[in-house]
């Protein structure tokens, strides 16, 4: 029984990392994903802020979910999420001033990040505290991982660095397009394609085996 429980917990955690990855699979939360990933560090900070909001609102909502009348469900969720987002925003401004200046209005925009409200609707409102936390953690990590990946690729080609470490030599001419919106769209488009391609290959192998 215990091992079964563990296995299901692991499943809740891992599905956000790959199979149900919020960005690649569900195609949610696009606006922060594309906007703040000009450098890997900004992607990482945004990922952390979103994960914080996701985990804390899942915790609160899974605790009080039975008390909330269904008619005002969405309104309550939104208020709770907005509260945590404001906390995250002030925390960043107080302790990581330069980063918060770079992220600008995209921190408050976490309020309308569909991943967070989507998870509360689809998962947290139907499950208990422990499962909801694992789900939130998995989704948060999956989201952050994609942000860091996209940020690294764009920073590498756009500025020749990753996390400000010089990777490409002096002779490298920065591809300005990677830092521009167009570069964000195209890179993410190909990454989604790559994700689907790997999944298709995996499925074929499983079928043939």
């Amino acid at each position: 029984m215990d091992s079964l429980k563990c296995a299901s917990c692991g499943k809740e955690l891992c599905k956000g990392l790959w199979r149900e990855n919020p960005i690649f699979f569900q195609v949610l939360g696009m606006c922060p994903t594309l906007a703040v990933t000009t450098k890997a560090l900004f992607g990482f900070s945004m990922g952390m802020a979103t994960t914080f909001v996701l985990i804390s609102s899942s915790l609160v909502i899974s605790c009080i979910r039975k008390l909330i009348p269904p008619q005002v469900r969405i309104a309550t969720f939104t208020v709770i999420i907005a509260t945590f987002v404001t906390c995250a925003d002030y925390f960043l401004k107080a302790n990581f001033y330069t980063i918060s200046k770079e992220l600008g209005p995209y921190v408050p925009l976490i309020v309308v990040n569909c991943i967070i409200l989507g998870r509360q609707e689809a998962f947290v409102s139907k499950h208990g505290v422990a499962k909801s936390l694992l789900d939130a953690l998995g989704m948060g990590i999956g989201f952050s991982a994609v942000l860091v990946l996209l940020g690294s690729i764009r920073e590498l080609f756009g500025f020749g660095t990753i996390f400000y470490y010089k990777i490409l030599g002096e002779g490298f001419e920065n591809w300005v397009i990677m830092a521009l919106p167009a570069g964000a769209f195209i890179t993410l488009g190909f990454l989604v394609g790559l994700f689907n391609w790997i999944n298709i290959r995996l499925r074929q192998r499983r079928n043939s085996a």
Binding site: V27, F185, I186, L188, G189, F190, V192, G193, L194, F195, N196, W197, I200
Partner: peptide
Amino acid sequence: PKPLQGAGITLI
């Protein structure tokens, strides 16, 4: 190409 159908090609 199949992997790019849907979101992929839209983003590009």
